[in-house]
Design a protein around this nucleic acid. Sequence first.
DNA 1: ACCTGAACACCGTTCAAGT
DNA 2: ACCTGAACACCGTTCAAGT
Lengths: 242, 242
Amino acid sequence: MYENLASEFGVVDTCAMMGGMPQPSAPRKTPGRPPRISREEILAAARRIVDEAGVDRLTMRRLAMEVGSTPMALYHHVRDKEELLVLLLDDHAARTLRRPELPAHPRERVVVAATAIHAALAACPWSVEVLTADDLLSTSALWFVEQIVDGLVECGLSPDRAVHGYRAIWYYTAGELVVRTAAARRRASDDRVTYREQVFADLDPGELPRLAQLADRWAPLTAEDTYQEGLRALVDGLLAGR
Amino acid sequence: MYENLASEFGVVDTCAMMGGMPQPSAPRKTPGRPPRISREEILAAARRIVDEAGVDRLTMRRLAMEVGSTPMALYHHVRDKEELLVLLLDDHAARTLRRPELPAHPRERVVVAATAIHAALAACPWSVEVLTADDLLSTSALWFVEQIVDGLVECGLSPDRAVHGYRAIWYYTAGELVVRTAAARRRASDDRVTYREQVFADLDPGELPRLAQLADRWAPLTAEDTYQEGLRALVDGLLAGR
DNA sequence: ACCTGAACACCGTTCAAGT
DNA sequence: ACCTGAACACCGTTCAAGT
C-alpha cells in the first residue's frame, strides 16, 4: 500500500520540519532468505501501539512482540528507534495531510497552509517527540512549505526574506505544539495547578502589577486556542510595509 | 548560598515557561537523623554533570555517585527526576537571568525582555528537554513576563490581548529553541546533510518552483540567526493598527 | 528523619550463531 | 538475506530494613 512511500515522494530535510529516510536499497532478485516482516508491517504495528498506548509505550521489544518477531529482527528494517519515529511521523503526514483549497489572496494562502500543517501535527501529540529529536518533515509537507514561501513572495518579500518568514512561522507553529503538549501532559498528571493558583494569588502588585491584575484571568486566558490569532499577527508583521 | 531559592522567589506556573517546586517543608528542630546531603548539593552536582557531559548523562545513579551517596537518598530531597530537571532550570534562570536596562519605548521593552529570556535559555541547550517535559519557568522569569505584558498594554492592547500576545511570543521563542537544538543535534550526528542536499537538488521545478529556485540557498539561509528579526515582525503584527 | 541494599521491571543495542 | 537468543550495559523507582 505505502511500500515505496519514500521513493514515491522523495524525502527532504526542510531544515525545520518532519522527516523521512531513504529506503535502504533496491530489492535484488531473491538473493537470500525471504523476509518474514516488512517495514510497512512494522510501521503499522508501531502506529497501533502509539495510538492505543502512547509514544512512551512504543519500545522495540513491545513492537517486536506486536509483529510476532524479536527485537533484533526490527533492526534489519530500521536503523534505530529514532529512525522508526521519524518514519512514523512521515507516514502520518503522508496519510493525513490533505491539500486544502487555496484562497486567492497570497497572504491568506500562507495562513491556510500553516494552519493545515499545524492541524495535522496537533492531531498526533507524539509528533513533538519527533520534532525535538529530528527536525525533518516528510515530503508530503513540502507542498505546504512551497505555498508559504510563494505566498510571502507574492506579497512582496524577497525570496530570502520569504525563507526567513517561513522559518519564523515554523518556529511559532512548533512552539505552540510543544507548549500545548506540555500543558496537556501537566493536566494529565494533575497537581501543580493549585500551586500555580496560589503563587498567582500571592503576586506582589507593587513589583508585578500587570500579572497581579491578571492573576485570576490568567488560567482561562492561556487555555484559549489562539494559534490562528498569533499566526495572523506574525504574518501581518512579516509583511508590514511591503 | 541558594538554599531557599524557592521560598525566596516563590515559584509559579506561568503556563508557558520554566518552573520550580515548593520546598518540601519547613525545617523542624532536629527531629531525627541529621541530613548528609542537601538539595543544593544535589543541584550543584547535577549542574556539574549536565555542563560536563550533557543532560543525557544525568541519571539518578550517576548523580548519587557524584554526591557520594546512593540513588535512593536523592528521593528524599527531590520527588523524582522530572522535578530535578525543573529545579535545575529554575536554578539556572535564577543565576543567569539579569534584568537588562529597559528602553523607554514600550514596544522595544517587549523585544528586549523576550530577547533576554531567549538568550538565557539558548545558553543552556538542555532547557528544551525541560520545556517539553514541564512548561514552567522560575519566578526569576516573572519579571520578564511582566515587562512583556505591560509593554503590550502600554502600546494599546487590552490586557486580554496582551496575555495572548505574550503567549504568541513565548510560542515563537520556545519553537526557535526547539528547532535550534534539534538542528544542533543533527549536526552533531553528521549524515543526513548530503541527503537533504540531494533531495533539494532533485526538486521538481514544475511542482515546487519556489523551493527549487531556492534550493542551493536554503542551507545558508536557514542557518542564519533570525530570532530577533522574526520577533520584531511578530510584535509589529500584534500591535498593528492599535 | 534520613540513608542503605537489594530488587523490580524495564530499556536500546551488539554480537555470534543459525537457516 | 534475514532472523534468533543470549547478553551487555544500562535505566527510574519501590520496598523493607537500618541508624
